[in-house]
Amino acid sequence: MLSNQQPQLIAVVPAAGVGSRMRSDRPKQYLKIHGITVLEHTVNKLLSHKLIGKVIIAISENDEYFPKLDLARNPDVIRVVGGGERADSVMSALRYVVNHFSTEWVLVHDAARPCFQLSDVDTLIDASFKNHIGGILASPVTDTMKRGDTSGRIEHTIDRRDMWHAFTPQMFKVKLLFNALSGALDSGVSITDEASALEWSGTKPELVKGQTSNIKITQPEDLALAAFYISRDKG
């Protein structure tokens, strides 16, 4: 049983990226939807979950935008210095968790995914507690999948059976993820999400079906879609 000072779950949000594909004057996590930054939408929603007590945000050392947000003065939000790659930022946050908290589980969530559903997080938490390893929110692929060649032409069609789109949050035991991610990075393995580090270590995380509205903002047109989903959920 955790003490009153120890949160049941901690969420890690890597937010050191620059989001160059957005063609904006600032990183995408600081673009606004309905007058609030994407990062604020994401973090405030995480903190609204009954089991998440703290959010650790990994941002770049010279970030000029975060100190201006109310999040910077929220006692449940902790800032750590992120790295050049997503995995480096997650490792920085995990080190803080290991050194300051005794909580067993951690969730990692993209800063640019403000449209996730708390009910999906509930399902992910329940599944992780039951399988004792963890899992990720994901959605089965429904589109026809093509593999292209180096010239931009179709090489062949990929069988979409058993293929999933990976979302976040991704939830794992702290020590399990820390060891897998640090081992993968030390070995020079390319890590695109936390589950890939677990896969590299020989562990098979669970796929937990989530809603397809859990989009990641990567292109300018994604802002309008995210604004729609956020308005729909509030309505």
Rank of each mutant, 00 (worst) to 15 (best):
M1S: 02
L2P: 00
N4G: 00
Q5A: 13
Q8F: 03
L9D: 00
A15V: 05
A15R: 14
A16H: 05
A16P: 05
G17T: 13
G17S: 15
G19Q: 03
M22E: 02
D25W: 03
H34C: 06
V38P: 12
K45P: 03
L46G: 07
L46T: 13
K50N: 08
K50G: 01
I52R: 01
V55G: 09
A58Q: 05
I59M: 06
E61A: 10
D70H: 15
P75F: 00
V77D: 11
I78P: 08
I78Q: 08
R79M: 02
D88K: 01
M91D: 02
M91F: 12
Y96A: 00
S102F: 02
E104G: 01
H109F: 07
A111L: 05
S119Y: 11
D122P: 06
A127M: 14
K130V: 15
G134P: 07
I136T: 15
A138R: 12
S139V: 14
R147H: 07
R147P: 04
T150L: 12
G152F: 07
E155S: 13
H156M: 06
R161G: 13
M163C: 12
W164V: 05
F167R: 15
F167N: 10
F167C: 05
M171F: 06
K173P: 05
L177A: 00
F178P: 01
F178W: 14
S190Y: 03
I191Y: 05
S196V: 06
A197M: 08
G202H: 10
E206F: 04
G210R: 09
K216R: 12
T218A: 12
E221N: 15
S231M: 06
D233V: 08
D233H: 11
K234D: 11
K234N: 12
